[in-house]
């Protein structure tokens, strides 16, 4: 099976979330996590979802992945309702999710094995993907022998091994240090450049979302709603130097402004009313947006 991604196939991977509402618990313990959210990811588009912690962005991703059922509304992939997890949607998690008992190569092969692909074919695909991730020399290592950044790179290529139509990423670099994270963003944008599949990327890092995305949805504090939708007009392929351009800086400022209010609301309503100065805190020129 040659899985050459022709132009017709590139049109697959359309995520459509309509009037989504998610409520956890019942009666007194009822928590509205997500309210009236509609968003979409066009085939081959890189879309980020950004918002303060606890705004329900991970919940939205869980729904698209098929782990959680929405209370209201629906999530569609290429017009079909999403009901359960499947290999048509690759998922990269925030926590390291490699199987510790499998070698690096066997981890990458896992999805193909589940699909019943024969051993020699699995091996070939896995080795090619590991080469792409720059980790071929580690194919026989166990995940516990690798650093966090290496584990996440393997997590990404493992999710790509089954040739999914979309890639769902839940703060995949959240646990990494800043330097590693910047390198990982470049690697991801390069890998994406080659595969050109739809990506829904969850993050709370403003620069990260701008650097990677074609489009960014900004969410409000709980209950999560879509506050704004921002297009990123930066050219591709993206390069690390672009983060110093005025266009990039302007986008950062715009997003910081949008998110500042929401992060204040997410922390505590009292802070929002009185302002941080009321608590004797010093707020820098960039405001609380710094915490993102």
């Amino acid at each position: 099976m040659t899985m050459a991604m022709t132009d017709t196939e590139t049109n697959k991977g359309f995520i459509d979330v309509r009037d989504m509402g998610v409520t956890f618990g019942a009666n007194d313990n009822k928590v509205v996590a997500v309210e009236n959210v509609s968003l979409n990811v066009q085939p081959g588009e890189f879309v980020s979802l950004i918002g303060p912690s606890g705004c329900g962005k991970s919940t939205l991703l869980s729904i698209v992945a098929g782990f959680v059922k929405p209370t209201l509304g629906e999530a569609l992939l290429d017009g079909k309702a999403i009901t359960k997890p499947g290999s048509d949607r690759g998922v990269v998690f925030q926590q390291y999710s490699l199987f510790p008992w499998l070698s690096v190569r066997k981890n990458v092969e896992f999805g193909l094995k589940m699909a019943g692909v024969e051993q020699s074919k699995r091996n070939t695909t896995a080795r090619a993907l590991l080469d792409l991730a720059g980790l071929l020399s580690f194919e026989n290592h166990y995940p516990d022998q690798l650093s966090g950044g290496m584990k996440q790179r393997i997590g990404i290529v493992r999710a790509l091994a089954t040739s999914p139509q979309v890639l769902l990423m839940d703060e995949p670099f959240g646990a990494l240090d800043t330097q590693t994270r910047v390198v990982m963003q470049e690697i991801l944008t390069n890998i994406w450049q080659q595969f050109r599949i739809s990506v829904l990327f969850i993050t709370h890092d403003i620069e990260e979302s701008i650097f990677l995305s074609d489009r960014i949805y900004v969410m409000t504090a709980r209950p999560g709603r879509i506050k704004a939708e921002i297009k990123v007009p930066l050219p591709r392929p993206r390069r690390a130097e672009m983060t110093d351009t005025p266009e990039f800086m302007n986008l950062v400022q715009e997003l910081k402004g949008l998110i500042r209010e929401e992060s204040l609301a997410a922390m505590a309503p009292e802070i929002k009313d009185r302002g941080l100065s009321g608590f004797g805190m010093k707020v820098g020129p960039k405001g609380v947006g710094e915490i993102f």
Binding site: M1, M3, T125, L160, Q194
Partner: peptide, 14 residues
């Protein structure tokens, strides 16, 4: 990265 044509895992050089 400069190769603009999209590829799938099976097409990568082995």
């Amino acid at each position: 990265a400069n190769a603009s044509a999209p590829v799938t895992s099976s097409e990568l050089p082995v």
